[in-house]
Simulated assay, not measured.
Amino acid sequence: MRAQAFGQAVFVRDGAHIREIQDINDALTFMGAWPTSRRGPIYDSALRACHAAQVGQLHADGASDAIRAFARSVGILEQTPVAIDPWVIAAQVLRGAPI
């Protein structure tokens, strides 16, 4: 497990891509790149939470919750992708095939 990893990754829309934020370092990188003109009180709170988690004053999941709240407030929060095992897809394809 990565140092200061989130219990559950946060997924955000970053332009045309979905970005996965897995830990404090990812979160700080993401927040640092956020446009200055779009920063506000919720951004400031999330950034403070990340810095507090970085120095051990807050659990990493507290910072994760703050990042998730920030992303939701600016409309970029994405749902956690659902992983499907390849055998499930193969079983569904084969089920409809004649024997």
Score class of each variant (00 low, 15 high):
Leu47Lys: 08
Phe30Ser: 12
Gln92Trp: 01
Gln54Phe: 08
Leu94Ile: 09
Leu77Gly: 05
Thr29Pro: 05
Val88Lys: 11
Gln4Tyr: 00
Gly75Lys: 01
Glu78Arg: 14
Ser45Ala: 05
Arg48His: 15
Val12Ser: 04
Leu58His: 10
Ala91Ser: 13
Val88Asn: 02
Ile67Gln: 08
Val88Ala: 06
Gln79Leu: 07
Gly62Cys: 12
Trp87Pro: 08
Ala5Glu: 13
Ser73Glu: 15
Cys50Leu: 11
Asp65Ala: 15
Asn25Ser: 15
Gly32Tyr: 02
Ile24Asp: 13
Ile89Ser: 06
Gln4Glu: 10
Arg48Ile: 05
Val12Met: 00
Asp26Ala: 12
Gly32Asn: 08
Arg38His: 09
Ser73Gln: 14
Leu28Ile: 04
Glu20Ala: 08
Ala63Arg: 11
Val55Phe: 07
Gly75Phe: 00
Leu58Ser: 07
Ser64Ile: 00
Arg72Ser: 14
Arg95Ile: 03
Arg39Gln: 10
Ile21Asn: 07
Asp14His: 14
Asp14Leu: 09
Cys50Asp: 12
Met31Leu: 15
Ser64His: 06
Glu78Trp: 02
Trp87Cys: 13
Gly56Arg: 05
Gln22Trp: 02
Val82Glu: 13
Val74Pro: 10
Pro86Trp: 03
Asp14Pro: 01
Phe70Arg: 14
Gln8His: 01
Ala33Lys: 11
Ala9Pro: 11
Arg13Trp: 04
Ala97Cys: 03
Gly7Leu: 00
Gln8Thr: 03
